[in-house]
Write a protein that binds this DNA or RNA. Structure first.
Lengths: 136, 136
DNA sequence: ATGGATGCAAATATTTTGCATTTTG
DNA sequence: CAAAATGCAAAATATTTGCATCCAT
């Protein structure tokens, strides 16, 4: 493997995968596969839902995407951001606030290390009722 | 509401719900609905899968159960432990270590409070590869 | 040309719901 | 007896797979 191999993945450079990657770059936030598929539709891109799922899975396996799961069970995908953060989500209206958590990051790494776990990732979700919904 | 009302839930006291509750008390660990249903079978209890799901949902809504989700998407249920803790889960073999996180608790409460959110709950899952799986 | 990628349809898997019947209080 | 719970079958949801075709290399 050459030292400057910039193809992180071994996949082919298809229109569809490019469209998915471009969309994720623009959105830069967690979306379900189905939402992403719909957004591609809106952009006039013609990509099958199956292909969206496959592209997302490939990218996630390659470590290019963060994946989290909604309480309802759908998985959410987002382009990996160098600025790792978590979410504070309103149970009632789903309003989401991104919060940074350096405290949690180091805590998670330390805890995992103490148990000999490697290749650590973590998810933190805080649920509550936002001020607007609470005042109704 | 009487001050010493010990019926946390308003449900009826059926054989099936009792069986599910008793099983959860014995298992005292995270299990899928299907696994719990199978265990009831093994015990000779005759409870429909639908009923298991409904009992679990009712108990979870009542705050009697903790619910988490596997990376694969199935939800896991466990009798609430009074000692709130989080999980360090091996991606490969699903081995789970329970870890306490006072740091995270206070962090989550503070962050949520700063944004005016009330009635806070949170989930933290740490994923990694356990020592055994990593050495293979 | 050749093997990976696509996309439709169908299969899976998990969880929920309609509804007739049974059971609890 | 009335309301709630059960359980079967069917629906709903999310995601994956078979396979014939297409296209990037």
């Amino acid at each position: 493997m050459s030292p400057y191999d910039d193809s992180a993945t071994r996949q082919r450079n298809t229109r569809q995968r490019h469209a998915v990657a471009a969309l994720l770059a623009d959105v830069n936030d967690f979306r379900t596969a189905q939402e992403l598929h719909g957004l591609l539709r809106d952009r006039g891109e013609r990509v099958g839902l199956t292909t969206v799922y496959r592209a997302l899975q490939t990218m996630a396996d390659a470590g290019e995407l963060d994946v989290m799961r909604l309480p309802s069970g759908e998985q959410l995908f987002r382009r990996c951001s160098s600025t790792h953060h978590h979410h504070l989500v309103c149970r009632s209206c789903a309003r989401t606030v991104e919060v940074a958590g350096p405290t949690v990051e180091s805590w998670a790494d330390r805890i995992a290390g103490e148990h000999g776990f490697v290749d650590i990732s973590h998810t933190v979700e805080i649920f509550g009722t936002c001020p607007t919904c609470a005042s109704v």
